[in-house]
Simulated scan of single mutants.
Amino acid sequence: ACGQELASGADIRFVPSRLALSTRNDTLVNGRRVNVQLFENPHGVQFEVVTFRKADVTQHWPADERFSWFPGFSWTVATCPRCRSHVWAFQPAERTDTKSEESSTFVALIAQQILTEEFASSLLMTPKSFVS
């Protein structure tokens, strides 16, 4: 939401969920097609999310299994380190060994808040004193 670089397009990891209300393909990151899933929280608020294997976010553990959009995974609130925008982090509900847990952990970012680097750069203004 603030332009902070949270994740790279190379870190996109589609994690399908049978609880998604819908799934669609969209062009979001560097012209790359990504899967966007629509979910609804218990309060009826809907979110379209893109899943990433990792992101530079602050995770607020402990995780909770209740109302998880991804069966078999616990979720926790995660936030942008700069503006504290809300996203989600997921980890396997059943903890096994550390290596597999690390590779199975993922983050869900809200699709409407994802800015491409090209778009973010276009928002930068050059002061008139630097324009020839």
Rank of each mutant, 00 (worst) to 15 (best):
V87Y: 14
F67I: 08
I114A: 02
H43N: 12
W88C: 06
E101C: 05
V87E: 09
K54R: 13
V29I: 15
R84K: 14
Q112E: 11
L109K: 03
S100K: 07
S122A: 11
P92F: 01
V131I: 14
D56E: 10
S8Q: 13
V77I: 14
F39C: 05
K99C: 01
P81G: 13
S122T: 10
R18C: 07
S121Y: 09
A7L: 02
P81N: 02
E40S: 14
Q46V: 10
L28Q: 09
K99I: 11
W61M: 11
T98A: 13
A93V: 06
P92S: 02
G72C: 00
R13A: 07
T116K: 04
V87C: 14
A120G: 02
L21H: 09
S132D: 10
V29K: 04
A10G: 08
Q4L: 04
Q112P: 02
R24M: 04
L109Y: 02
T116V: 03
E94H: 08
P81C: 06
Q91C: 11
I110A: 13
T58G: 04
L124D: 10
P42D: 11
V29N: 00
F14M: 00
F67K: 09
Q91H: 12
A111G: 04
E40P: 05
L28R: 11
D64T: 13
R84M: 12
S122F: 04
T96H: 10
A89S: 15
D56Q: 01
V87G: 03
V77A: 14
T105W: 01
A10K: 15
T126C: 05
T58C: 10
R32F: 05
P127D: 04
F130C: 08
D64C: 10
G9C: 12
T27R: 09
F47Y: 15
P81F: 06
Q91G: 10
L6F: 07
E65I: 09
C80G: 07
V77M: 13
R95F: 15
D64Y: 08
C83T: 02
S103K: 14
L123Y: 04
A120C: 01
L21C: 06
T79R: 10
S104C: 07
A1T: 11
S17D: 04
F73N: 03
Q59T: 13
T76R: 10
G44I: 09
V36D: 02
R32V: 09
L21Y: 06
V107K: 00
L38R: 13
F52S: 05
G31Q: 08
A93R: 05
D56P: 03
Q91M: 13
Q59K: 15
F70P: 03
L6W: 03
G3V: 01
L19Q: 12
R18L: 07
S121E: 14
E117N: 11
N35H: 09
K54M: 07
T51W: 06
Q59L: 13
A108F: 05
C2T: 01
C2S: 03
D64P: 07
S121T: 11
V45F: 12
G31H: 03
Q59H: 11
P81R: 05
E117A: 13
Q113W: 11
